[in-house]
Design a protein around this nucleic acid. Structure first.
Lengths: 350, 350
DNA sequence: TTGAAAGCGCTAACAC
DNA sequence: GTGTTAGCGCTTTCAA
């Protein structure tokens, strides 16, 4: 295969504009100290020749690769893809991240890593060596993995930690779980519910705690009891069903349940149906995440949306700012989550 | 920001192993004419130092970037993402493509292009100049777009055309639509159905024709009538409902319908329900694509799976072979599609 | 404000 | 079979 050469290089532009390579480089990188007339002349040549810099060459000589690496857990991601159940986490990251990258002249590359073992360091190290990304986006459950955060810190590569409060020294972003849980609970309170159950996520996810706190806070502010009204699941359908069964078989049965993800909410509706309860007449249900499952459930689920796209987009912006040496934002960036109203919620039964 | 240097370069390895750069390069690239003892010694240094070549440097000097570009239609992809209805085309491409790339030492980068206007050339040209990909994967509806295929041909970049018979000079891959349609129809015939309706996709999609031909072929082989039993939709829910209404209001109503995608199949079930027909007792329904919607539909849909992951993986293999100068496969590569049995099909009513 | 020179990490081409 | 040399396209450093 023939040696491949760039069609139009910086040399062509320089020759065309009658200036040095360096001046063209300055124009490309929007550096100061270029006379406007020069800048215009060079830009005209660039446009005329349709010149686009090679990112490989930029990376070779300069300090940037114009590449952002997004890391996801290998096992979970592949399992979701194979299940074809419409878990759209990756799509939403792509939606927010790719478009924002494109806007800023960057590209996003996905990489899967094994969180469970020590391969992480080798795998991530290889990706860093091969690509030299300008920034890395970490996602749960490894946003706070010290093996990863230490490695990135050592390499001086800025990184965003989605769903983390930023212990690792990166840029933390969280999705307003606590506020959203409060909002969802308040919505139910507004519908007249006072006995509202909660199905929590596993405690090793930080967001499980945030969601729980939001529900608890809203309940307590309204003077409603929370004791004995919450059960922990592990995000799976089975665990949701088990939790729902416990809550719904109590003598003082809740008239509404807030479940920490869509799977557990669907399970709750199924259990309700088995018990002869209809949703939303006898029981209102609200879920978290708003994956496609929430739309397709019958009745469709009122859900707290997870603003993955917005969060990823913001992560990209902050990463590039950090790379540019801008002063970092203090504290975690919170992306607010909306409540999407559908058919699984209604007024409390009399 | 400090100038970033590679931690371990080919030089370090060469020094460590006491050989020339070139020898290390030969080992990395698995070139012949390296004495086994040399190869082992160098490999030992590589392993010990944890050396990984920089793809930017490889691209700069050599003829490969180790990057594969996957092109998708901007408008449709973004619309799907925003709808959050679980269309998992991109996920499946990622599943098949990313894993295969990783296996072969490549990376996959996604890019969205506007198919509708002449921006394509500018957009794609820019992506090519910036990334210099070793191969490009084209997806419907622009697998045969001459603006794109000509540009790639001119740049001598190998490209795969998914869902195309290969008019553009690329590597064509198709997903066995015709065979699958035949299989699906035969499945219905096997259940005793003889009056089987078909809802076609829009005629500007090549695969619409293939699916239609498969149904027609199976019907004719079985001696069943096809005239008046097919209606064209445009893949939307509304068009599916309209087509189903026409088919199901005929005096000689079909006992089974094969719809060219999941949306139109769900619409068909809804229309059946309105007409007081129950699925699958009175009417069997089979869909194409097997997106998450097919799982969540009630009853769940028996569907022809679209093997996007397998197809993408194969495309990567063929692209890299082409890049290596291997002799191309003749004719389109056909990836067989399976029929996934669920609850929307049953024996023909008596 | 602009230009010239050096070099990033690697491979192709050629010499030995 | 192995080493040497000359770049790839760009930015950095330094000089003018």
């Amino acid at each position: 295969m023939a040696r491949r050469r760039q069609a139009v290089t910086i040399k062509h532009v320089a020759a065309d504009a009658g200036v040095s390579l360096q001046t063209v480089s300055r124009v490309i990188n929007k550096e100061p100290n270029v006379r406007p007339s020069m800048q215009e002349k060079v830009q005209a040549s660039i446009d005329r020749l349709g010149y686009i810099p090679s990112i490989a060459a930029q990376r070779m000589s300069g300090s940037r690769s114009y590449l952002i690496l997004a890391l996801n857990d290998r096992e979970r991601t592949i399992a979701d893809w194979r299940a074809r159940q419409g878990s759209d986490w990756i799509d939403q990251m792509l939606l927010g991240g790719m478009l924002k990258c494109a806007e800023l002249g960057y590209r996003m590359i996905f990489e899967l890593v094994d969180t469970h073992n020590d391969h992480v360091e080798r795998e991530l190290g290889a990706a860093i060596a091969a690509l030299q990304p300008d920034g890395v986006i970490l996602t749960p459950p490894h946003s706070d993995n010290p093996l990863i955060t230490n490695l990135l810190t050592a390499h001086k590569i800025p990184f965003a930690q989605i769903g983390s409060e930023g212990q690792g020294g990166g840029i933390p972003l969280i999705m307003g779980d606590q506020d959203a849980a409060r909002k969802a609970t308040e919505h139910l309170l507004g519908l007249g519910h006072t006995n509202i159950g909660f199905i929590a996520g596993p405690s090793d996810y930080l967001l499980s705690g945030w969601r729980l706190a939001g529900w608890k806070g809203a309940m307590e502010s309204a003077g409603c009891a929370t004791s004995g009204k919450s059960q922990e699941g592990d995000f799976s359908f089975a665990s949701g069903a088990a939790a729902a069964k416990i809550l719904l078989c109590q003598s003082d049965r809740p008239t509404a349940i807030l479940a920490s993800n869509d799977h557990m909410a669907v399970a709750t509706m199924e259990v309700a149906s088995e018990l002869g309860l209809s949703v939303p007449t006898d029981l209102s249900v609200i879920s978290f995440d708003n994956t496609p499952m929430a739309i397709f459930a019958r009745p469709s689920l009122t859900a707290v949306d997870q603003p993955i796209a917005d969060t990823t987009a913001r992560a990209i912006e902050l990463l590039i700012s950090a790379k540019n040496g801008d002063t970092p934002v203090l504290g975690p960036t919170i992306i607010p989550a909306d409540l999407v109203l559908r058919d699984s919620t209604g007024p409390a039964p009399l």
